[in-house]
Design a protein around this nucleic acid. Sequence first.
RNA 1: GGUCCCAUCGUCUAGUGGCCUAGGACGCUGGCCUCUCACGCCGGAAACGCGAGUUCGAACCUCGCUGGGACCA
Length: 467
Amino acid sequence: MIVKTRFAPSPTGNLHIGGARTALFNYLFAKKNKGIFVLRIEDTDIERSKEIYVEDILNGLKWLGIEWDEGPYFQKERMEIYRDYAYRLLSNGYAYRCYCTPEEVEEKRRVALKEGKKPSYDRTCRDRKDHPEGRPYAIRFKAPLSGEVIFDDMIRGRITFSCDELDDLVILRSDNTPTYNFTVVVDDASMGITHIIRGDDHINNTPRQILIYRALDLEIPQFAHVPLIHGKDRTRLSKRHGATSLLEYRDEGFMPEALMNYLARLGWAYGDQEVFSKEELIDKFDLSHVGKSPSIFDMDKLLWLNGHYIKTLPEDVVAERLKPFLAMKGITIDDEVERKVPLVLKPLKERAKTLKEMADMALFFFQDDFPYDIKAKDKFLTPGNLGILDSFLKGFEALTSLNETEQKRLIERIMGEFNKKAVDVIQPIRVALSGKDISPGIFEVITILGRDAVIKRIKRAIDEIRA
RNA sequence: GGUCCCAUCGUCUAGUGGCCUAGGACGCUGGCCUCUCACGCCGGAAACGCGAGUUCGAACCUCGCUGGGACCA
C-alpha cells in the first residue's frame, strides 16, 4: 500500500505556524514512507474564503520547502461530487430529508438546553415518511442510536466515543451546499488518503467522520492527532500572538531551514538531536515520537536556530538572501556592493540572528555618511581622543600595505605614543569608521572598507569633533 | 455546561519498572577567550502537579483529585 497524506487548509486566513507544522508532519511522513503528499484547499465557505489566503498558503509552503505531489485541489470545484455522495447515502438509507427550518431547529435547541438536556437535533424528521412537495430540505446523516465508535489514533492511542453523544448531522444544507465533516470524508476517501495527520482540534470530529466512512462503505484511514501549538498564554495560537503568516518570518529575515527545523522539533524529538536538515528529517521523522501535550512557541529558540543556519549554511546562499534586505535599507545593489557582500558576510554571520539584523549591521560598510550613534559619539568622539584619531590618520595614510600585521603595528605604535590600552585606541576609531561602539573586529572593518573609505571616515570624525 | 484530550526544568524535550542522586537544547547565570559586540569553550541554578494503590522497586502501570487545553453549545 502506498502511503498518501494531505494538508487541507481553509483559505480563511494566512498559513500560520500551526498549519505549517501540520503540513510539515504530513509532508515528512509521506516522504519518509516514499508516499504521496496532497494539497487540498477547503474553500467551501465562500463567504470567508479569499484568494489572497490561497496565495499566502501556497507561497508559505513553497518558501518553507514543502512541495506537494498532487493538487492543489479545490473543494469549490468538487461540489457535484459531494451532492452525488449525499444522495447516495439518502438512497441507501443512511441519510434522510429533514424539513425542519433553521428557526425550528434553533428553537428546539433552546428548549432542550433550558430543560437541561443536550442541545442536539431531536431527530423529528428521521422517520418521516411523507415528502412535502416544494418544501426545502436538508440532508441529515442517520447516526446510530447506540454503541460506540472506537479508533486507534497513531499518537493518542485508543479513543472511544459513545454514539449517544453524536447527533444526526446535516451533510447537505437546504441551499445544496455540503458541510465540513462530509466533504472531508468524501475527499479523503476519493483521493485515497491513507493517513490523516491533523490538529487535535479535530478529534471530536473523527467519530462522525468514521460513521460516514462506514455508511459509504469506504476504507477508514489511519488518524494521527497532533497537539496544537499554543502561545505564551497557553491558548491556541492566533492573531494576537504575533505573526499571522509564515511569510512574515521570511520578511523578518528568518531562514526556511531554521523554521522547518524548529517546527519539526516542536512537538517531536529524536533523542538529544536539535539540528536537522530536511533530508535528515525525512529520514528520521516518525509519529511515535510526537508528543501528546500542546507545545508553546518559543521565539528565542527559533532565533538561536536561525543564527545557527546563518553561520553554517554556505556563504553564497546567505549572501544571496541578504541582498533583498540590504535593498530594503536603501542600498542599491551595484557591482561594488556585490563585491563587498561576501566580505561583509564573514564577520557578520557570527553576530546576526536574522538577515534583517545582519542588514542593519552591514549598513555602515556601504555608506560613508552613516549617522553616528549618539551615545557612542558622545563617549568616544571627544576632543580628548582627537590626538589618537589624528595620529591614526597620519600613520594610516603612510601605510604601504593594508595587511593586518601593518595595521596592528600602527595601533600598537599609537598605544605607546599615548600610553593607552588597545581598547582606548580602538574604540574611537571604531566609532569613526562604523558610527557605533559595537562592530566586527577593527582590522576586519578596515580591510573591508579599504584605504579611501577609512581616510574619509576618520577625517569626517575629526571634523565632527571640531564642529 | 457536555464530550474528548493532556500533565518531566521558564520553554522544546529524552525517559516505555531498576541504567535517574532525571539527560540534552534554548533562555538565564558565573568564568575563560578578547580591540567592542558576538562566536566558541568551561561551569552553575532550574522539573517528574497532588494523593492513594500495584510492586522487592515507580517519572514510567492503575485509580482519584487538581490543573490546563480543544471541540460542541
